[in-house]
Each structure stands twice: as C-alpha cells, then as structure tokens.
Design a protein around this nucleic acid. Structure first.
Lengths: 334, 334
DNA sequence: TTGAAAGCGTTACCAG
DNA sequence: CTGGTAACGCTTTCAA
C-alpha cells in the first residue's frame, strides 16, 4: 500500500516519519543511516514507516550537516564531438574513483549557453572543470573564488589552472613524415569560425617553414565531417597541386577522407591526410586515420586530479606538469 | 589582494562576510542576490567584502531554504558508446531548456559500478533517468520512491516508467529489404555477454521466419567494433554461405564492415550489412551504413519529459506514448 | 534601508 | 537504546 498516488504536494520530512513511527527524529536518522545504536524492532518500524510515507531525505539538509560530498561541474562545448566525449568519459571515471559527482553541462558551442551555465554553475558545484571560449574576465566574474581547471585552453592563463595541449613536436613529426614521403605541397584545414588562428596552425606553419616548404596553403573548416569535406574541396580548388593535408582535428580529417573518396582521389596514394586528436573513431574509417594523437584519457584525469588539489588545498600541479603531449600515431592515411 | 593562498581550512560563511562588511547576514544575502532593498554603497561594500574573503554561498544551505533547483541523475553504461552519447546529449539538452541540472554516472558496463551508483544517487538527485541492467527488485530497493525513468529497457516493467524501443517493424523492413536484394542466407550478430537473447534477435527471427528463410544463423559479438569484426569472422566460419548480416547495433555493424573489407569481401556486393541504432557515426564509414534507425534525440527528450511529469505530479505519459519506433534508413551497405 | 528572529531538514553531541 | 538540543548556512518574513 504505497501512497505514491496524487500530486504529492508537501514533501515528507524526517519529522513525519518520526511521528508516524512514534519515535524521535534522530531515531529515524539512526535507522536510515544504518547506525547500530538502535533496537531491531524499532529500526524495522521506522523503516516501514519511511517506506509507507515514501520518505526520502533531503539532500540539501543532509549535505548541510555532513559536508562530505563533492560535486564537480564539467562544462563542454559539444558532447557529440568525440573528442569531448572522450575527455568527459575519462573525467567521469576519475571522479568516480574519488567518489565525486559530476554535473555535466553541454553548452552546444554557443556563447549564450556558456554564459548561462557560468551563471548557475556556481551554486551547484564545488569546482569546475571545463572548456570555455569566453574571456578570462567573464570567467572570473561569474566564478570568482571557485576552483577551476581549464582544459586545452589555447591561451595560457595565469589566473586559472589549465591543462595545456602541446602538439608542437607531434605536428613537426607529422610534417616531417609527409615530407619524407615526398610531399612538398602540404595544406592545412584549420578550424573556421574562431577569431584567431589556432595554435595547431602555428605549429604547422613553423614546421613547414623549418622544412622550407610553402606554408600558406590553409583553408578553414567547420568542426564536423561535413565541414572537413567542404574544407578539402575549397583547399583543392585554391591549390590543386596539394598532395597532403594536415587538419585541425580528426573529425575534420575524417570528413576530408570521405570527400577525397568522393572525388576519386585515393588515400594515401593521391592524397595523404593527417588529423589531430587521435580519436578512437579514427580506427574505424578506411584507411585508418594517421593522427597527431593526444592522450585524451590523461587529459580528463589530469584535470580532475588538479581540481582535486585545488579543492583540498593540496599542492597544485604547476604549469609544466599540466601538459598533455601529442605524438604522431601512424594509421594508413598518410 | 585576494586571500586565496594557503589550505583554506574553514569555509567562509555569510556570517564572516557580514562581520567583515559591518552589516548583518541578511544584508549580505540581499546584496548577493541582487535585491533592490539595499543602498548602493552598502551593497558595494558587501560585494567587496565577499570577493575579498573569497566567499561562495553554500549550495546546500541555499537549496534547503529555496527549494527550487531540480537535479536529475543520468545513468548510462558507457559514454564512449556513441549510442549512449547521443542519448545523453539529448537528455542534457532537454534538461537545459528546463533549467535542470544533470549529474551523469557512467557505470562502465559493470554491475558493481551500477549498484554503487544506485546506492549514492538517491541522496544526490531528485529523479533518475537511466539505462540499468540490474533487476527491478534491486532498482526498487535502492531508489524507493524516487521518480525513475528507464531507457530502452528490454523487459517491460510496470513498476517503473520506461521508454520502450520498438524496432519490430524496422527489423522486418530490413529483412524484407535484404530478401528483395536476393539474399536468402541472412545471419545476425547479436550482442554477446548477456543472459538472454535480445529483443532485436527475436524481431529478426520472426521476420526471417515470416519470409520462410533459415533464421538460425546467429553469432554473438561484443558491443564494440572489434567485437563486430570477431563476430563476423565466427559467423562466416560457421556459415560460409551467408551473404547478408543484420547486427545488434551500429558499432558491431561497423566492425563487421571493417572486417569484411579485411577479408576482401566487398560491401554490399559480396556481403550486405544492416545495423541498428542509426548513429551519426554510420555516415562516416564507407559505405555509409544502412541501419534500422532510432530517433536517439527523441529518446533522451522523452525520458526527460516523463521524469519531469513524475517530478511535478503532472499526468505521466502512459506506456504506449513512451515508445520510440525504429525504421530502416538506407545507407549503402545493403 | 536595515536588522532580528524564525525556520528549511538533517545529523552530531550529550543527557537520560 | 533513545530523545532533547544545538548546530549546519542560508533566505524569508516581520519589525524597527
């Protein structure tokens, strides 16, 4: 006979259970929390009463008194982007081993959603890990004092901890690899839609220059497979002699791969493609994607580790430990 | 001069801010919550004090008094599985439009983690949406009285709301399609590792029987691309004359696709493959995957919708509204 | 405009 | 083994 019908207006409190069972509130608390300083029959009576009334302790009241639960906010631009999925998954895993809870916010890559999230997140979590595109000032304004770790933020910042992605050596290796294969006209598909060119592009340009090849063959691409396809088409239209492409990330690379197939250019023979990220996804396409690979697992774990240190007051990792290096991982596309 | 150095032992409370600013606690509250019954200069003084002290309101205390934030727990077996990623993303989106927060738990497909999650989730969220593999009794035991919506649970249950996946018509269409292409030896790669055969297998068997073809050609496969590859190999070893395969899901299908390529069997000419789920991922492989597609977006949104009804006491949707139908979506693999 | 007092629902600390 | 009392940190009346 569970009384769960109807629009349960008032919330059942511990007091109601106590009265119903004919005991005091703290006896109810003892019974529900499995303390042993309670008689068996009393305990049973309380438990029955609680079930009968559909009682569930208020997480707020409980959290208020025993301050022992930690909740992290994880902010990402797009859960459907496999890169962020991988990061999120590893962050969730790292949090789970610590017994922490993670509230996930997907900002849909929109500034408005990001700001909205920043506004409400402060009152929901103890610390924030995330990928933000807004200015540091805005970040600071909405989350003053909250422990915060930025993931893969391309602008280094002193005010917040951030996990830096160092792909310089990896991108150099990628370019060197292409050149060793005889390529001299190497293009890049950078991400479109952001104000400044990416660090990855800078690494690419440096590497190309170091090898004395023309580094101006850059086109923009949306961060999607379709974007990668369109980008490749644009790049080849502008520079028909390009024989190899380095892309901002694997999603774009996979789109380029698909587009190359549609254009009848065989990969890697007629067009070499190297991505960035090293997603698991890259192993599913044909040919398997060669990529400047990141340890996304470490990325998420590191972020959680650092936010934990910030939270507990332990020695935080310093900047040069908060780095994930990328390295060239051969697939079959280059 | 921000005092954020050191191991911040005691938490800064509203009281500290009040004392520091020389006002009372509720004045601090007013200043921080943007109430207008406060003088400008006082407000500024309080705000300064709060920043100086690094004050952040306790979410528990705040939640206790103004009971207005809703938090949903989302439990999934594996965020790296694109199917669950898609569902999670749509659930997050639906929650965001309602201003709800979502705590995500990835149980890593392990029973132990699932139980562990069930044990702690009750004190963290107002309602649960999720994909569970444990028995209903266990579910009930740990979450008694909590609004709960099960996603795609293959055993219908009266005790909990659950979103049903109806792929019967879609699978029939898939089989019919294969038969129309002239296939008569159609195999299936069912998921391995669960006790009972899947509903999808049952649909397949029924469809095969309806067309009068041998329906016994089933092999198991782990829910991964590698599993799909191994499964295909096993299936073809046992039944070399199989010319078409229907799989438990798209991940397995994509693995089978890759394996077929490795075996030198061209798809769809020498081997037709049809998956299940209709993941976005299917469009990235070659040939694009033909699949019995689910509207994963609707799946997540429906779950959130229903849990909202349960939460507010509104009329819950009944079983026949809580269904997502699958339909055959042609790609190029069959 | 500001402050005092009264909760919000729970658990911890002592009495009994 | 059980119950009273006092926090926990905040917001919301209600007076001043």
């Amino acid at each position: 006979m569970v009384s769960s019908s109807g629009a349960e207006i008032r919330k059942v409190t511990i007091h109601d259970v106590a009265r119903f069972a004919g005991v005091s509130r703290q006896t109810v608390s003892r019974a529900l929390n499995g303390k042993d300083e309670i008689e068996g029959s009393t305990k049973q009576r309380v438990l029955d009463a609680a079930r009968e009334l559909g009682y569930r302790p208020s997480r707020f009241a409980r959290g208020l008194v025993r301050q022992d639960t930690t909740t992290i906010g994880l902010v990402i631009p797009d859960l459907l982007n496999p890169f962020f999925t991988e990061v999120a998954a590893s962050a969730l895993e790292a949090a789970r081993t610590r017994g922490w809870h993670v509230v996930v916010y997907d900002t849909a890559d929109r500034a408005a959603e990001e700001l909205g999230t920043l506004q409400v997140i402060g009152s929901q979590v103890d610390a924030v890990v995330g990928y933000f595109s807004c200015s540091e000032d805005e970040l600071d304004r909405y989350t003053r004092g909250m422990p915060m770790v930025l993931i893969g933020s391309e602008h280094r910042t002193a005010r917040f901890s951030s996990i830096r992605i160092d792909g310089e050596a990896g991108v150099h290796a990628a370019v060197a690899h292409l050149i060793a294969q005889g390529h001299t006209r190497i293009g890049m598909l950078d991400h479109a839609g952001r104000a400044e060119p990416s660090l990855r592009r800078a690494w690419f340009l440096t590497a190309a220059a170091a090898h004395g090849i023309d580094a101006g063959l850059v086109a923009g691409a949306d961060q999607s497979a379709d974007g990668g396809g369109a980008g490749l088409r644009a790049l080849l239209a502008a520079h028909p002699d390009v024989t190899a492409v380095f892309t901002f990330n694997d999603i774009i690379a996979i789109g380029a791969l698909r587009e190359a197939r549609r254009m009848g250019r065989s990969v890697p023979r007629e067009l070499a493609v190297i991505g960035f990220d090293g997603l698991a996804l890259g192993a599913l396409v044909e040919p398997p994607l060669t990529s400047v690979a990141l340890d996304t697992h470490r990325l998420g774990a590191l972020a959680i580790d650092q936010v934990g240190r910030l939270l507990t007051g332990a020695d935080p990792l310093d900047a040069d430990e908060l780095v994930v290096h990328a390295e060239l991982r051969p697939g079959g596309s280059a």
